[in-house]
């Protein structure tokens, strides 16, 4: 994706700069952009390490396992297809909990493992099953309790109160997730009617 976007951005800006924009400004922005990246990365480094550290405690203990049990009613509601398939349900809950905790690194492997198990019981191997669609949607929904990266960026830019976006983020994520889940459920229903 970036192999297309990146050159488009640069070539587009150069053409626009030459014909209708400000070439002086463009020149300074080429150098300052690279510098900004360094300052952002360096300030991100601290909080990235801190959170990876804390989260590795959550990963190595039974923390994720224990929390997964709490969300099992939600999983039952979202994945009615799976009924008694406890193994897949457990994989899905662990993926959700890892997402909620912001454990991007372990969420993806857990999610892909669940995808794999779902594919095994999928009737049409070329098409996503209902449960697979729901699982993907949940992973695009950014159900994160602490948006660490944004908080780190905010504090690197000298915000007075970097964490005060947490509740607004929760509200927006929740609305997005509800809209997403509802539309998946609706699409599934509509698809059944057609058949």
């Amino acid at each position: 994706m970036l192999n297309m976007l990146w050159p488009t951005f640069i070539i587009g800006s150069i053409f626009y700069g030459i014909f209708c924009g400000d070439l002086n400004k463009l020149n300074t922005s080429i150098m300052s952009g690279a510098q900004d990246a360094i300052t952002t990365c360096l300030t991100l480094l601290g909080s990235m390490c801190l959170w990876s550290g804390v989260m590795s405690i959550a990963e190595k203990t039974k923390f994720i396992n224990n929390i997964s049990k709490i969300i099992s009613p939600i999983v039952n509601f979202l994945f009615p297809e799976l009924k008694e398939n406890k193994k897949i349900k457990k994989e899905i809950s662990m993926n959700m909990v890892a997402n909620i905790l912001g454990l991007g690194n372990s969420a993806t492997p857990l999610g892909l493992k669940a995808m794999d198990s779902l594919q095994k019981i999928n009737k049409n191997k070329k098409e996503l099953s209902d449960s697979m669609a729901m699982l993907i949607l949940l992973n695009t929904a950014s159900l994160q309790l602490i948006p660490t990266t944004v908080i780190a960026i905010r504090s690197s830019l000298g915000s007075q109160n970097p964490t005060n976006i947490i509740v607004p983020v929760w509200i927006a994520t929740l609305v997005a997730a509800i809209v997403g889940v509802t539309s998946v459920k609706l699409f599934i229903k509509l698809g059944r009617k057609k058949k």
């Binding site: 951005f9 640069i10 390490c49 990876s52």
Partner: peptide, 28 residues
């Protein structure tokens, strides 16, 4: 592990920060 992750996205961010600030400052 966090250091490794940050270092991994470092080059990506340099490339993208330059492209984005060019987009912005060119006026496009």
């Amino acid at each position: 592990e966090g250091i490794k992750i940050t270092l991994r996205i470092f080059p990506t961010l340099i490339g993208l920060f330059v492209a984005i600030s060019m987009l912005k400052d060119s006026g496009i």
